[in-house]
Design a protein around this nucleic acid. Structure first.
Lengths: 114, 114
DNA sequence: CTGATCTACAACCATACGGTTGTATATACG
DNA sequence: CGTATATACAACCGTATGGTTGTAGATCAG
C-alpha cells in the first residue's frame, strides 16, 4: 500500500492549520453543512469554504449535496493514512533501537562467557 | 498534556514536504551532517539547510555541533506528538462508532424482550 | 413569482514558501 | 600560513497560501 508522495504532501498540508483540524474533528462526529461549520470561525464564509476545499483535495472530508446545502463528512481512512506515514517514519527509529538492544544483549552474553 | 496549536501547525507543516520527511526518516536512524544530507537531494545546500531549519523549528530534529560540521539527529518525541494529535482526531470518530454500536445493541436487546 | 439562504467562484491583496546565488565565518588539513 | 570544507545568513524571485469582497446560480419558504 504505497502512498503517492504528492498526496501525503496534501494530507499533511491540510492538517497544518488549526481551523482545518477543527473541521476534521467535528466532521468525524457527523455531517455538517459548510455554513454550519463556518458559523464557529472568526472568518468569512468563503474562507471556510476554501479550508473545506483543501480538506477535500487531501481526501480528509467528502461533500455530499443534500438539497441546497452541502454536507461535509470526515473520512477516517485519510486520517489512518497519515497515521501510517508517521508509523513508517517511526519504524526506522524502532528498528534502530532494536538493533542497539541486540548489540547490548550480545555484549552481555559475551560478558557472561569468560 | 495539552499541545499548543501553533506548534502543531509547525509540526504538520514540516511534515508536508517529501524532502523533509525523508530527512526525518534518515535522521531517525542516526546523526548526519547537513552537507551529508544535502548530497542526496536535487537542490542547493542552502535549500536543504532551510529544510533542516524548518524541521528544527518544529522540534522534529536537533542539531549538535561537532567540529566544523553540525550533526542533525531525529527526535522521536515530536513524531509521537504528531501521532497523538491524529489519535485525538480519530478518537472522536471511534466514540461515534461506539455510540452507534451501543444503540444497535440496545435495539437488539429490546427486540429480544417482548 | 419573490425573497431569503446556501453554495460556488473570480478577483484581489499581503504574506509566506521553496528555491536560487552570493557573501561571511569557523574549522580542519598540509 | 594558506586553502579547502561546513555552515550560516541575507537578498532576491516566482508562486502558493490565507484572507477579503463581490457576483452569480440553485434551492427552499411563503
Amino acid at each position: 500500500m504505497v502512498v503517492d508522495q504528492a498526496e501525503v504532501d496534501l494530507l499533511f498540508h491540510a492538517l497544518a492549520d488549526a481551523t482545518r483540524r477543527d473541521i476534521v474533528r467535528r466532521t468525524m462526529d457527523g455531517s455538517f453543512s459548510v455554513s454550519t461549520l463556518a458559523r464557529d470561525y472568526p472568518m468569512s464564509f468563503a474562507a471556510v469554504q476554501k479550508h473545506v476545499a483543501v480538506l477535500e483535495r487531501a481526501g480528509l472530508v467528502t461533500k455530499e449535496r443534500r438539497g441546497r446545502e452541502h454536507l461535509v463528512a470526515g473520512n477516517p481512512a485519510a486520517l489512518r493514512a497519515a497515521h501510517d506515514v508517521l508509523d513508517r517514519l517511526e519504524l526506522v527509529w524502532r528498528e534502530r533501537i532494536a538493533r542497539m538492544d541486540d548489540l547490548l544483549a550480545a555484549d552481555t552474553h559475551e560478558g557472561n562467557r569468560p
